[in-house]
Write a protein that binds this DNA or RNA. Structure first.
Lengths: 178, 178
DNA sequence: GTCTATAATTTGATAGAC
DNA sequence: GTCTATCAAATTATAGAC
């Protein structure tokens, strides 16, 4: 893993624990064994790092899923697969969704970071629209509404599970989603 | 309004925009016309301020609603009233729920603040359990599950509306909640 | 209750050597 | 790519006067 990749990985953990203001260049540098000044070689400013972090997170998240049509053709319910990806983030990483946290603090984010956070949700809603359409054919408007309801419930369930420190809350909230 | 009340009000706006790390004693002091050192007279540490902020927010939130049984007796659906309180926070204040944001960054919060944030959700889930029980009699387990689903959807819908900067998302997500 | 003054630390960022 | 050295600014917090 390159130093740049390691820096993004370290940053992801910090942001998913406490948001955009919860990491410093010095902390990341120490975590990967370089000096603070060297971080600026990879990311000119903190805003650049934050934007690249959210952008990569979005791509990784969607790439790990694959296309809903292909999942369905393989006998996998794409909505179940989507829920499982959120479940794993919560149970394995024991962390919030990166863009869930950034989305909540959207008002105070630097522009580039805010834009990348918005992009996460736009692309995820689009993915879920396709998923809903492929699982149970319905109107375009109904698919969009169901897509929004699905991701809203997942982000909310994650948030509250973290807040009360009890993952059962997540399971109770998402039981009837799939 | 006392200086202390004004400080909490200023802090609430900052935290609801960007989380616990998004305000400083100096900013709050300037906002209410005193000096940073004087803030420590009202709140010994930042953790104390954060905890009192979340505690007061929880009390104000529930007091504004009143008891679900009383609402129901007055011909008001308590779940609709609850949804409206979230809607107003988003449309009028144009801000996230304070404890929604704090809950998302729970892992990195000072202990007192984390505990008060947890208390917000425990009390709100309890309130919603009563509301569901009063609207449509059902098992205690079912009422609890519905309470969790309701607040998860509201927090998630709010979060995503902020992230994509479009309040229609909130309305789409909550249409079938009441 | 509020002030001045100040301490100790952390922060994002830059210049320039290697 | 990484370093040393450094900076200006911001942060939480305290001591003591008024």
């Amino acid at each position: 893993m390159s130093k740049k990749e390691a820096l993004l990985k370290a940053a992801q953990l910090k942001v998913r624990s406490g948001g955009y203001n919860n990491f410093s260049f010095r902390e990341l540098a120490t975590a990967v064994g370089i000096k603070s000044a060297s971080v600026h070689y990879h990311f000119p400013t903190k805003e650049d790092l934050g934007a690249e972090l959210a952008h990569q997170y979005t791509n990784d998240f969607l790439n790990a899923l694959g296309e809903p049509q292909l999942l369905n053709a393989s006998g996998i319910n794409p909505i179940d697969a989507y829920i499982n990806q959120f479940r794993n983030a919560l149970l394995e990483d024991k962390k919030m969704c990166l863009c869930g946290l950034l989305g909540a603090e959207s008002d105070s984010l630097p522009e580039k970071v805010r834009n990348e956070t918005k992009r996460f949700f736009e692309h995820n809603i689009e993915w879920l629209e396709k998923a809903h359409a492929v699982v149970a054919p319905e109107s375009k408007a109904a698919a969009k509404k169901n897509a929004i309801k699905t991701i809203a419930m997942l982000e909310g369930a994650m948030l509250i599970s973290k807040a009360v420190d009890n993952n059962d809350v997540f399971e109770l909230a998402v039981t009837e989603l799939g």
